Each structure stands twice: as structure tokens, then as C-alpha cells.
Amino acid sequence: MKVPKNPSIRRLFFKPGLVPRFQQRRWAKVQDIRINDARFLATQATQERVFEKYRDKLSRRAKEEGHHDVGSLRKAYEAKIEALKNDASLASKKTLTKNTDETTTQIPFSPPPPPEPQSPKVVAPKTSDVPGVKTLSSFIDLDKTKALPPKEIEYIWRLRHAKDANSLCAVIPGPTYAHLSLLARKHPQFVLPVPREGQGAEIHFLQWTFPHPDTATVLFTQLAEYKLRGEYASPHTTVSLHSELLVPKGLVLAQGNVQDERGMTVEDGRWLLMCLQKFYGPQAGEDGLRRRKLLEQFSNGDSGFSIQELLDEAERF
């Protein structure tokens, strides 16, 4: 199980961390300088820095050669400097031309060949696109089932799970599932009570997951174990809702299992499913408003969430 995003549960496992600070970038002013002007300014600035660095040495050299200042020395060597610049520029152009010719010779350009026509691929049918997730085709023949009327599908589905003492199964009408799915995505975590005679009630944590486009799964775990182990807690009851027949038949088939030796019975699992429908199913009137309020309070980590109100609503018929 993954750690829920619910603020009420998350505080049990995490401590608030430091919020990184980001420095705000200041806007920089952009000068409108043409390319030639920019090159001139950059070259002139570079020359001035070089001149300042070697000012003393140039002054001594000017005196040794009989010049009255550095400017006279620079003027005397001006022709020689220009000749060296021209030689360097010519050598650079020859090297560039040579490299271009070699590249053109070694890697001749040719357009890519047109794509070959491909025959449509035949994809083998899969029972599930996600490893470890069982879809409805893992339990029944979908093609044959789609040809049956809804009443007969319901009968076959219940008969399919009748021999397993720990199994849970249900047939959910399409409109009911639409409401369940909508609230499940909005409130993927919640808690439900299981009454214990002479001991009050035991609180269980539920989590919705959607591992496949046609499958929704509900995991039930004792809240005490979830507090102790967090994401490593093992659910005692798992129920999957399969929606492959939703469009053609208006039905969603649900199947689940209650784990042995976990302190839970099949009757406890059925009670949890009944409570699940109470809070996530379509409810009208004041009952529906109270139950939606409890869902909202739990999802938002509201301190006004009341376990006693939860018990009252779960036992109300």
C-alpha cells in the first residue's frame, strides 16, 4: 500500500521539511548595439587592457630604440603588425576550406529512403496490461458473457464465487458505479468502523486504487496496523470492481477475498462493503449530506472529523 495523501494520516509518518527558497531574478536592461559596433568596442577594450598591462615594458623599449613615447613605437611597428594579421587570417581560411572539403568528401549527403509499407500488426489478446492485475477476462469468457442478458450474467457471477468460503462478490448497476468511482477519485482514503460485541467498534482504513482502466480496487487494513507499518501494512480484505461490461450491459462485477487468520470474517468484509456503499454510493437527503461532509472532513484533515458521527452513520439504516 502506498502512503496516503490525506493530511490526517500523513502527519503520523512525516515531519514537515524545509521549504527551499528561490532567489528572484532581476530584469536586465538590453542595450541596442549593432554587431559591428559591438565587435569594435570589444576589440578596443581588449587592446586597452593589453596596453595597460605592458605599459612599463613598452616605455623602456621605446627609449632603447630612440622613440620619444610609446605611440611613436606603435606607429613604427604598425606595418609589421598588419602583415602578421593578414598571414594569420589567410592560414585560418585555408584550414577552414580544407576541413570543409574533407567533410563533404567523407560524408556525402543523400536523402533518406521512403518508408516501406507495413502490414497491420496482430496483437495477441492479454488478460491484463498491468502485471499482477486480474481483469474480468481472468474469471469469465467475456465474448460469451456479452451475449447473455443482465439477469443471467448476475446469476453466473454469483455462482462462480459460491464455492469459495472467503470470497466476496457483488453486481453493481452502472449509475451506482459511476457515483462510486467519482467519489473514490475525489476521496481515495477513508476510515470505516466494524462493530465488536462488548468492545465498541474497530476502525479500518480503506484506500482506493485504479491499477487498470477497467479495474478499481479497494484495500481494507486495520487502522492500528496501518499506523504501525504505514505503506508496508498488509490489507486483510481486497475487493476489485471490473467495468468491462459497463457499456454493453450496464453492470459492474465486483469480487474480493478476506484473508485467513487476520481476525476478520467474511461477514466483516460484507459489512465493510455495505458501509462503503453508504458513504460512496448515491445518497439523497440529509443522510447523504452528513456522509459527504464526513468524507470531505477526512480528506481535508479537518479537526472537526468525529469518530462518533462516523459510527452513527455506519449503523444508521
Rank of each mutant, 00 (worst) to 15 (best):
A178I: 11
E244M: 07
K93T: 13
T237M: 05
K121S: 14
E231D: 01
L18M: 03
R39I: 07
K93D: 10
L223I: 05
D287V: 01
I172R: 00
V133C: 03
Q259F: 08
P112D: 00
E82P: 02
F190A: 09
F139T: 00
K75F: 08
K93R: 12
E267D: 12
S128P: 02
K293I: 00
Q297R: 15
Q106H: 14
V191S: 04
E152S: 07
L182K: 13
A124H: 03
L136N: 11
D143F: 05
Q283R: 14
F220S: 04
E102A: 12
T104Y: 05
I172A: 01
P150V: 08
T105M: 13
V19C: 14
E197A: 14
K53E: 09
E309R: 07
S240V: 09
K85W: 09
V239Y: 08
S234K: 10
L148G: 03
K94F: 08
W157M: 07
T215G: 07
P20T: 10
V252M: 02
W27H: 06
R11M: 12
D32F: 02
L311I: 15
S138D: 04
Y232W: 10
S89D: 06
T46L: 08
P114M: 01
K94I: 15
T215S: 03
F279I: 10
Q23E: 09
L310S: 02
D56Y: 00
S167V: 02
P195E: 09
F190V: 01
V70C: 14
T103M: 06
N99Q: 14
L12S: 02
Q23C: 08
V218C: 11
Q277I: 13
D69W: 00
T145S: 02
L168Y: 07
M274I: 07
L295T: 08
T95L: 14
D141N: 14
L219P: 07
P248Y: 05
A147T: 14
K278I: 08
H187R: 06
L295S: 02
I153R: 03
A224W: 07
Y155V: 12
E116S: 04
E152F: 10
